[in-house]
Computed example of a mutant assay.
Amino acid sequence: MNKDILTRVREIIPVRAITQGEALILAERQAALLLQLLAIRAVPVDVFKISELPNVEVQVKPRYEMSAIAELPETSEVGGVTHMRRDGRTVFTINREDPVGRRRFSLAHEVKHLIDDPAVEIMYAKFGYGKPENRARQIERVCDHFAACFLMPRTVLKRAWVNGLQDLEALAEQFKVSMSAMQIRLKYLGLTDEEERPASEYFRLDGPSLIFGADCPDVAA
């Protein structure tokens, strides 16, 4: 049943370099398609159905083992790691010491890396402006966006909001995500605004001043 799911999700990737804006739109389309192909029709999203993808394995490990797998210091905050085994299987390793909301988000984040893997060099060629570290950060943001779209589908979240479920903590609990992830998603969808600020804050004069005297033609007239 699921043997062609990854192929079908990958088919909508353009065979060219894309902008970050295009990447975010694509990530949401991929998330919606994956939900459909995995027959997920309820929230909280059953993110563990990702383990039903062909040649995919999901495991959880303590933080110190996560750091070793990722080849990072033990103090590093590693939520998830993807690696390929010699037998060709993809293994998603998730930090078991993280809260459940972050574990779910990390797993969804990692599957985006798997989806994009065959096309990553072409599709993200414009990212980072030639700086590998900037490119990597931008790709991580796209994967975060995919995870948010997968766990908090636009239509479902908007319907919940319109029906009166607007408390941040209650929404996070309903969708089984962290409050910070829910807050970011609500803001992205335009359901919440920035914190109220004084009007003067929108007209701030940052940076050094350039002093001009009365002899300036524009002010002397």
Rank of each mutant, 00 (worst) to 15 (best):
M1K: 11
D4L: 11
I5W: 02
I5G: 00
L6E: 00
R10M: 10
E11V: 03
R16D: 05
A17P: 07
T19Q: 05
E22R: 11
E22W: 01
E22G: 08
E28V: 04
R29Y: 15
R29W: 13
Q30A: 04
L33Y: 13
I40N: 08
R41L: 03
A42H: 13
V43D: 07
P44Y: 14
V45Q: 04
V45N: 05
F48Q: 14
K49Y: 04
K49E: 14
L53S: 06
L53M: 10
P54D: 10
V56N: 07
V58D: 05
V60L: 08
P62V: 09
M66F: 06
S67L: 03
L72C: 07
L72E: 14
T75R: 08
T75V: 12
V78E: 06
V78P: 05
M84L: 15
R89E: 06
T90L: 03
V91K: 01
N95Y: 11
R96I: 05
E97G: 11
G101I: 03
R104M: 08
S106Y: 01
L107A: 05
K126T: 02
G128Q: 04
G130W: 01
K131E: 07
P132R: 01
R135V: 00
Q138L: 12
I139T: 00
I139G: 01
E140V: 01
C143Y: 08
C143Q: 09
D144Y: 06
H145L: 00
F146A: 03
F146N: 02
M152P: 00
M152D: 04
R154Q: 13
V156Y: 04
V156E: 04
A160E: 09
L165H: 09
A172N: 09
Q174D: 04
K176Q: 14
V177N: 05
V177F: 07
S178L: 07
S180H: 10
S180I: 09
K187M: 05
Y188S: 06
T192H: 01
T192P: 01
D193E: 15
E194W: 14
E194F: 12
E196D: 15
R197C: 09
A199T: 13
R204I: 09
G207A: 08
S209T: 11
P217K: 13
A220D: 12
A220S: 15
A220P: 06
A221E: 14
